[in-house]
Computed example of a mutant assay.
Amino acid sequence: MSSILLLGGSKQQVVAIEAAKRLGYRTVLCDYLPDNPGQYVADVFYQQSTTDKQKMLEIAQLEGVSGVLAYSSDPAATTAAYVAERLGLPTNPLKSVEVLSEKHLFRKYLAGHGFPCPKSVPVAVGASADEVLGVLLGEEMSFPVVIKPTDSSGSKGVSIIDAPDIEKFARALKTAAGFSRNEVLILEEYIEYGFPRVIGGDVFVVDGEVR
């Protein structure tokens, strides 16, 4: 029986574990939370952080998996690509996944390829409010602005600031830093809605075609 490593066992991710089992895979689950529901569905469970790339690689090697999946998890997407590349398993390229997963790299990519995007500047964790405000003014960015971690998801650590208030900037930087793993934050202009809703979607690409 082929094994698959699944990164994350939250309620939303249980469907992936169940689907893998229906397809005949032995399921190996990793999740750092001790109360995740996926552990009761998977065949094997490790209480380990899915953002720890080296640990996930060790588990994948130990279990002899044939695939790695980070279903419904942005933070674990780079881990899945890293482990799969190291083991020669099917994956999207790690470099591409990193660009799509880390906001400062994605903004740089958009700007470099002529896509419409807000003005943005990467900011190191530890930068002072005065320094960040100086960057904002130097880049002639318009208020409101957003400060957020570049490698988090689900709007964690995000603050919107509508005036050059040093105390607000200091609080926003501290909040964002608390959710940052790579120690890179981003300062960018806030885009206000010009219509009543956002339309988005997900696609699955096979051999360069949307299926």
Results as ranks from 00 to 15, higher is better:
181 R>S: 10
1 M>T: 14
211 R>N: 12
54 Q>S: 07
77 A>G: 07
127 A>S: 15
74 D>C: 10
107 R>P: 06
114 G>Q: 00
100 L>W: 09
139 E>Y: 11
58 E>S: 14
69 L>C: 05
93 P>R: 12
146 V>S: 03
19 A>E: 13
21 K>P: 05
99 V>N: 12
59 I>N: 07
30 C>E: 01
79 T>V: 10
190 Y>P: 07
185 L>C: 00
193 Y>E: 12
121 V>L: 07
92 N>W: 04
164 P>K: 14
116 P>G: 01
133 L>K: 00
38 G>E: 00
111 A>Q: 08
188 E>V: 00
99 V>D: 11
189 E>D: 06
143 F>T: 05
118 P>I: 11
115 F>I: 01
142 S>P: 06
133 L>D: 08
147 I>K: 07
150 T>G: 09
5 L>G: 08
91 T>F: 01
112 G>Y: 04
56 M>K: 07
99 V>S: 13
157 G>D: 02
36 N>D: 00
134 G>Q: 09
191 I>G: 07
2 S>C: 11
41 V>H: 07
93 P>E: 09
11 K>R: 13
201 G>M: 06
96 S>L: 14
158 V>H: 00
186 I>D: 06
47 Q>S: 14
6 L>D: 05
81 A>N: 06
145 V>A: 01
83 V>C: 02
87 L>H: 11
153 S>R: 14
91 T>L: 12
192 E>A: 10
207 D>V: 02
118 P>M: 11
94 L>C: 13
117 C>Q: 11
59 I>P: 04
58 E>H: 07
90 P>S: 04
153 S>L: 09
132 V>R: 03
184 V>D: 01
141 M>C: 11
69 L>Y: 12
142 S>H: 14
170 A>Q: 13
35 D>V: 02
66 S>H: 13
141 M>Y: 05
130 D>M: 06
116 P>W: 10
117 C>V: 13
127 A>N: 12
49 S>R: 07
158 V>A: 08
204 F>D: 12
42 A>K: 00
125 V>S: 01
62 L>S: 15
149 P>V: 01
176 A>S: 05
40 Y>A: 15
86 R>G: 03
115 F>P: 05
173 L>Y: 13
209 E>G: 11
136 L>V: 00
99 V>I: 12
71 Y>M: 00
142 S>A: 15
9 G>S: 04
79 T>G: 15
45 F>T: 05
71 Y>S: 10
178 G>K: 01
166 I>L: 09
54 Q>I: 05
160 I>F: 06
132 V>D: 03
35 D>K: 03
139 E>V: 12
137 L>Y: 14
160 I>L: 05
177 A>F: 06
126 G>T: 10
177 A>E: 08
178 G>S: 02
12 Q>C: 14
8 G>W: 01
3 S>I: 00
149 P>M: 03
51 T>I: 09
150 T>P: 04
3 S>M: 10
125 V>C: 03
146 V>R: 04
182 N>I: 04
190 Y>M: 13
113 H>V: 15
169 F>I: 01
105 L>Y: 06
126 G>A: 15
123 V>M: 07
153 S>E: 13
133 L>Q: 07
82 Y>K: 09
179 F>C: 14
53 K>Y: 13
200 G>R: 08
6 L>A: 08
54 Q>V: 14
88 G>H: 06
39 Q>V: 08
149 P>S: 12
65 V>G: 02
31 D>M: 06
54 Q>F: 02
71 Y>I: 05
